[in-house]
Structures are given as C-alpha cells and as structure tokens.
Design a protein around this nucleic acid. Structure first.
Length: 492
RNA sequence: CGGGAGGUAGUUCAGCCCGGUAGAAUACCUGGUUUGGGACCAGGGGGUCGCAGGUUCGAAUCCUGUCCUCCCGACCA
C-alpha cells in the first residue's frame, strides 16, 4: 500500500516524515520552507493551544495581538536581540506590485513603492511589544503587565523540517513587565513550570527543567530557562523556553515606571514561548512503526468506533447502537468519531486509525450486539479485549487515563535509561555515538570549552538542570575544576 | 548556503541513456458481490510530464535557466 511507513530502525528521518505526512498532520506547500498544517494536525494544535491558554489565564495573563511587521529602527533598538536574529529575518522593502509591461499577465515589484523604512517580519515580538509597553506603563500601579499573544513568526532557516523547523511557524509568546527583579525571575520560573506541567500532563512528555549556558541563551536575555525532551533516536529537543530579560528591553525602549517613592525605575521583563514544534516532539516521543500514538488528553479523537456489518440491514442496527454509544461517550466528555464510511472496509480503517494515533478503537458487529459486548483495541500497546457494553463509558474513561499515564511512564523510563554519566572524554564520545541521550558530565564553565566540545563531539550543552546536585569534578575536555555536571546531547 | 538525490494521473513509480500517438499499480466514479486486520468482478473518468526559455519537422526525453522537495553538512526553536 502507498500508506506504508518506513521503520524507525531503517531511516528515522523518513519515519518521522511518514508519520507527519501520512498521519495527515501536515503537508508540504508551494512556499519554500513553509508547511500546510492540515485539519487533523491543526485540531491537535488547537487542543494543545487551548490547554496552554487556559493555564496562562489561570496564572493571570491576558491575550493581545501585536503587528506582524516591525520597523527596522525599532527592531535594532535592543542590540543583542537584533544581532541574534539579523541573519534570519525576512524584510519587506516595497508595498506594491505592478503589471510587467514586457510580459503580459506577469507582475513586477513597483520600484516607485520602495518603503522609506524597511519592515522586518517578526522573528519574535519583543521590539514591537516593548515600544508599545512604553506607552502603557507609567506607575507601579500598571505592573505587573502580563500579556500573551498567539501568533505566527518568521525565521528564515537554511534547512527546514516539518514542525521542527520551518520558515513560518505558529507559537505563543508571553511578554511581561514587573516592578522588581525578584518578581520577574519568579515569573520566568513560573512559566517554565507551566510549560513543564503541560508537557508532562497533557503531552505525556517528560522534560528536564534547566538553564541555558551563555552561548545557548536567547539573544537579549539575562537568563534562559528551558525544558528539554528526549526523542526516541536519542536526540534532545528543546520544547520550550522562558527568558528573564532583566532590564535590557526596558532600557532599550525606555520603559520606566514611577515607584511608590515617586522615583523613576526601569521595569523588569520576561518572555516565554512554545511553538508548533511541540507537535514534532509529540510525534517523535510516542510514535511507533505503525504510525502516530497520541496522548488521550490532546488527541483530536480519543475513541473511534468501527462498525462491522453485512448488508444494509445489519448496518442500520449497528448504526443505531453506535449513535447511542456516541451520545453517551460525548456526554462523558469523550471525543469520539464513528466511521461508517462504506467505501473502506474494517481492516483498512483499523490500519488508518492506527496511523492517526487514535488512543482507543471500538469494533462492533452483529455478533457483539447479540452478546452485548464490544471489541476494544488500545493503540499504545496493541492490546485487544472484548468488553461488556454495560459500563463501557466508565471503562473507557479509566482506560484513557491509563493510556495517558502509560505513555508518560514509558517515555520517562526511556529518558531515565538515557541519562548517563561520563567521566572521561573517550567515554563521553562513546556514549554520544553509541547510546545517545543525555550525557551528564563536568564542564569548566567557559564558552570556549563549550565551543570546542560542540565542534569535536557534535553535541551541545542542553542545559544546567535546575536544582542540580553540586559535585566537585573535572571538566570532560580540559580537566579543569568543575562544581557540577551539565547535560550534553546531540539535538534537533 | 555547500554536497547528493528527485519532481510524469489524487498517491507510489516506470518511460528519459538512444527524441516519433504518455504507461502501470493503487486511489477515484458507476453497477454488482462483499465487510471480524489494508476485498473482488466488470465498466469508466483522470496527466499543460514542476515552471520558463531554447534546439528540432517533432521534446516527458537533448540544452539553459528557474522553482519546489528529500537526505547529509554549516546556521537555528
């Protein structure tokens, strides 16, 4: 069949692409580096987005929307941030096209329409937002200002991969302003925890909370906190970041407030974001050689019902029962799909929904109806069982929770097995080459050493875990003294 | 942006070397038989051969340019 999936062991990259394309999450588009998110993929994103949005609101944030375009002069105001993104910015230079006099039906950029000031298509919105906050903030009474926006951003990437790295992607970016440093740091950490909770509880994706080293830090940030996840091929993936921006943007955009003592102070800032990249993480963390495996809490459909019938008459009987079950499941808050499409036969549907990662599948035929039972199959374990119809809804609710927990536990066990200590360079390289995963090793704390390791080992410091144990040791490369281990990995 | 591969029916691909009426499988449509792990029979529709130039009596095939994709690197969420 055309829908066969490449095995992970054969070609991991191709396997990933197969899941995304054949699982109907996304498609390639006519635009270089950009993808089309298909309805099934977008439904997944909507579930993720809604859960996160609720968590943001529960922590006091409000949504707003800022422009796609950033005047170049604003963009360059915060120097480090501007430099950090300069190489990947799309720039609008003209605002009009006109008919090409030499080629009928073709258009030309109208040279008359050159913009006086170029517009940068936002790679992130700090500049436009902070220039706005300047007007919004006057006194300590305006603080904290807790804003989030759901938006698209553009980063001109050299090499793209569906969901993991595309030129345009969807994300949310929180931008907050605070009266004190302590409060801003607390906000940064709070939002990191929101991300970690979301990843673990909704995506069943265990993550390591940590701090980035200086060279991996967001341009313009004082500290970048992150959650790092581990994929099945042993590579790490940054799943979310939360930045303590200090007063860098406040100073760049002159955002001051009057404190209780009637004195002007610069505000303290944070920003934090997660993107559609999380979908890539989800695919690679749980998928198998049969297709996607989606965690019940965010799966577009949690249950699919496949009727098995012989002829119109039996179909009508099964339809009626299925509709009844649907109503009951929906009333219990379960997202369910009934596939009575007559074009495809049961076996085809089974394979199709396994590809799409629907957590539970119910198959029901006349025989089952006579016996008042139903066949239930679990996507994650491939287990099948025949259950009484009686009490089915409760059983399904329990099973969905079980699957959610089981996916998390499986991923967590894999990750635990793949955090390995290395105490010599040879061991370090061997672990990266042969085992993969995170390698916990000592590092002398300098950017130079980090750079050399990156070049030689093709691995980066993913993070310094929060609440890291202090342990005296010697740097894996230079042998210089080190106070703690950090996590290295090859990464996406 | 460098190296490699590729773009022909909705999809997967053959045809290209050696120019001469565009093919297969599958999907789709119609009818029928079917339906408990990717059904079968019969009939049918569907392609400006990525796009633009050029060579030629004639181009999917040769030449040039360009766009898009995949894989591997460098850059990055």
């Amino acid at each position: 069949m055309s829908k066969e999936i490449t095995a992970r062991s054969e070609d991991y990259s191709q396997w990933y692409n197969d899941l995304v394309i054949k699982g109907s999450l996304a498609d390639y588009s006519a635009v270089r580096g950009c993808m089309v998110i298909k309805p099934y993929g977008f439904a997944l994103w909507e579930n993720m987005r809604d859960a996160l949005d609720k968590m943001f609101k529960e922590t006091g944030h409000q949504n707003a929307y800022f422009p796609l375009f950033v005047p170049k002069s604003l963009f360059e105001a915060e120097e480090k941030n501007a430099e950090g993104f300069a190489k990947e910015c799309a720039v609008v230079t003209h605002y009009r096209l006109k008919a090409d006099p030499d080629h009928k039906g073709k258009l030309l950029v109208d040279p008359e329409s050159k913009l006086e000031e170029e517009l940068v298509v936002r790679p992130t919105s700090e500049a436009i937002i902070w220039s706005t906050y300047k007007d919004w903030i006057q006194s300590y009474r305006d603080l904290p200002l807790l804003i989030n926006q759901w938006a698209n951003v553009v980063r001109w990437e050299m090499r793209t991969r569906l969901f993991l790295r595309t030129t345009e992607f969807l994300w949310q970016e929180g931008h907050t302003a605070h009266a004190t440093e302590e409060e801003a740091i607390a906000e940064t950490k709070k939002m990191l925890e929101v991300y970690a909770t979301f990843a673990e509880e909704f995506m069943a994706l265990p993550v390591i909370r940590g701090v980035k080293t200086e060279s991996e830090r967001f341009a313009g940030a004082v500290d970048t906190y992150c959650i790092e996840a581990l994929m099945q091929d042993g590579k790490a993936l940054q799943a979310g970041t939360s930045h303590f921006l200090g007063q860098n943007f406040a100073k760049a955009f002159d955002v001051k407030f009057l404190n209780k003592e009637n004195k002007q102070e610069y505000v303290w800032a944070t920003s934090w974001g997660v993107s559609t990249r999380l979908i890539g993480a989800l695919v690679m963390a749980h998928g198998d050689d049969k297709g996607l495996v989606l965690p019940p809490r965010i799966a577009p459909f949690q249950v699919v019902i496949v009727p098995i019938y012989k002829g119109e008459e039996s179909k009508a009987v099964i339809d009626a029962k299925a509709q009844e079950m649907m109503k009951e499941l929906q009333a219990a808050g379960i997202r369910v799909k009934y596939d009575d499409n007559d074009n495809a036969r049961p076996g085809w549907k089974f394979a199709e929904y396994e590809m799409k990662g629907i957590p539970l599948r119910l198959a029901m035929g006349l025989r089952d109806m006579e016996n008042k039972v139903i066949e239930l199959a679990r996507r994650d374990t491939s287990e099948k069982q025949v259950l009484p119809m009686e009490g089915l809804t409760e059983k399904i609710k329990t099973l969905l929770e079980e699957i959610q927990a089981s996916l998390y536990n499986k991923a967590a066990a894999y990750r635990e097995e793949h955090i390995t200590k290395a105490d010599s360079w040879d061991e370090f390289i061997q672990l990266l080459d042969e085992k993969g995963g995170f390698v916990s090793a000592h590092w002398d704390g300098t950017a130079d050493t980090e750079e050399v390791i990156k070049e030689k080992a093709k691995a980066t410091i993913r993070c310094i875990p929060l609440h890291n144990e202090k342990e005296e040791g010697q740097c894996i490369l230079t042998g210089k003294p080190s106070a703690q281990r950090v996590l290295f990995a090859r990464a996406y």
